[in-house]
Design a protein around this nucleic acid. Structure first.
Lengths: 226, 226
DNA sequence: ACCTGAACACCGTTCAAGT
DNA sequence: ACCTGAACACCGTTCAAGT
């Protein structure tokens, strides 16, 4: 039986699609050139005809799923448009949980990535933002423009609630951390309990930034001269 | 000659110090249990008596360098205190360039990390911030509390300025990106030219957030009820 | 043109043994 | 108590060969 017989020849698209499917299911740590090859019923080196190396594979995967975003929808004013766009990107990241870590380490800016940024920048410029202000504003958004933020701790599966003894120790050693952790938005407000509403926190910070940006724009902000 | 003779026995501190020194010099990608062992003139498995595994090694390294931060200095009002604290953390990250990527992936919160956060939270609470507001504010700061942000692209060694042909192509394909890139803070404002003043961008966004936070605090912000 | 097979130079970590 | 040696189960990627 010739290799990959049932599904025909390999090509770049099939490689990338399989990689995305595998990573959606098993996570970013699980994907490797060797396992992807096995998945495709092929020897590891066969992949290298369709993808330069592992970095290029990740670039291609990111590019592929980012096409799901589609063109930007005008929501009336710049603020709602930007807000909606960013929250849509955030939903995409939720569907492909590995995408965040891939974007974080991307150096090569793929056309799809540049295209997304271009459309976002366009919203500000069309709304009359100066180029300098647009520049700073995009930096201030940072990864939030992609719909994610680096939290204080990367807590993928949060720890179980502390036992009373642990809590006693923590309250004494880090009283402020404990006090802050105790008030989790949209929780029953009882104890440390499965923490924060990430969506609320994301929107809170996003709105804080958008509010600040509005003010600067209204005041026709200009760079300090020194 | 007994192993590690000249420098005596191994211990946790020597392991961590050597790891920090090696990683400061060669970067995070270069450090491995095997290379660290070689550096210490020891067989790889010898390290495992002093450090549970590689993750624990990284935890220990982060913990060690974070002690450089020392206790928080009161700068008068909460805003200046927080600002100074965060900018000091940022300088630490500049001295240990690997620390950022380590903090990003940390799940185990070491005592030194918790201690830093506790002192920062304390500043807000002492200034009269409610616990809920403090909670959201800390989330809004996110990794910025550690002195770093996830930028749109992780561009460790920025690309050389594009050739005229490349620029022509880019201007046509991504006109807004090019326009935005052309105005780099504190550059001569000429062309794409070695981009942004990261320190300026960091402070711009930090002040944007601190301004917004001031407003919420002054207005005695309360969570929406629904 | 595309895929294979064997090999190289690495990883982190186990286990059983040495001193 | 601490370090060693050999081994296991992985990586990404090279090179030369097959069809």
């Amino acid at each position: 039986m010739p290799p990959t017989a049932e599904r025909g020849r390999l090509n770049r698209e099939r490689v990338l699609t399989a990689a995305v499917a595998y990573t959606d299911e098993h996570g970013l740590d699980a994907i490797s050139m060797r396992r992807l090859a096995a998945e495709l019923g092929v020897v590891p080196m066969a992949l290298y005809k369709h993808v330069a190396d592992k970095e290029a594979l990740l670039d291609g995967m990111a590019d592929l799923v980012l096409t799901e975003l589609g063109p930007i929808a005008d929501a009336g004013d710049w603020r709602s448009t930007v807000r909606a766009r960013i929250l849509a990107a955030r939903e995409l990241l939720a569907r492909h949980r590995w995408l965040r870590r891939v974007l974080e380490t991307r150096v090569q800016q793929t056309p799809t990535m540049l295209n997304y940024l271009d459309s976002l920048i366009a919203v500000f410029r069309r709304a009359g933002f100066s180029d300098v202000l647009t520049h700073h504003v995009m930096h201030a958004l940072g990864s939030r423009a992609w719909g994610f933020t680096q939290e204080l701790f990367d807590d993928p599966n949060p720890a179980p609630p502390p036992t009373p003894e642990q809590l006693a120790f923590l309250s004494q050693a880090f009283p402020n951390v404990v006090a802050m952790a105790a008030v989790a938005a949209h929780s029953d407000g009882s104890v440390i309990e499965r923490g924060c509403d990430d969506q609320f926190e994301f929107e809170f910070a996003l709105d804080l930034l958008l509010d600040g940006i509005s003010v600067l724009q209204a005041a026709q902000w200009e760079p300090p001269r020194n």
